[in-house]
């Protein structure tokens, strides 16, 4: 053994990297992408909906290659999740749904942001390991939904 590290993730990158992670998280949690274009504010309906919004503290979405106001809308049943970049460049996830309590929506947002972070880190790590010449020896999703990757490379 050489060294053991514990790392805290920062979700930082351009919009395409974020959308790839959003797609992965959505697929894992059974959410469907509704639309990716800019949304009109549905003020009449929004007033009746319970809403919860969470900002990923350790996140930064780069503005480049991104249209202002762009967001991804996901749906599962009658719950709608919106992922967007706020004015400070942070990643924001907002859940809304009729007939759902604030606690239910908060749980949904927390579950989604965790999966989004895991997918983002996985994509990033897998890409960088490949460019560094590592080969995947084995990879598995463990019982607690952790992802274990074992890689190897030979050096002179």
């Amino acid at each position: 053994m050489s060294t053991v590290l514990v790392l805290v993730p920062i979700v930082s990158g351009g919009w395409p990297l974020i959308t790839a992670a959003v797609a992965g998280a959505a697929s894992a949690l059974g959410l469907v992408v509704k639309e990716t274009a800019k949304q009109e504010i549905e003020d009449a309906n929004q007033e009746q909906l319970q809403q919860v919004q969470v900002e990923l503290a350790e996140s930064e979405i780069l503005a480049q290659s991104m249209v202002t106001g762009q967001e991804i809308v996901l749906v599962k049943g009658d719950i709608e999740l919106r992922v967007r970049r706020d004015e400070r460049g942070r990643c924001v996830v907002c859940a809304a749904g009729k007939g759902h309590s604030e606690a239910e929506l908060k749980q949904m947002v927390d579950q989604f942001t965790q999966k989004l972070t895991q997918c983002f880190v996985y994509n990033r790590v897998a890409t960088e390991l490949k460019t560094k010449g590592f080969q995947v020896v084995d990879e598995e999703v463990m019982q607690d939904e952790s992802i274990r990757i074992n890689v190897r490379r030979y050096v002179e």
Partner: peptide
């Protein structure tokens, strides 16, 4: 290198 990404994203 063995990498374990927890459900919360901690590595």
């Amino acid at each position: 290198v063995e990498i374990v990404i927890s459900p919360s994203g901690e590595v």
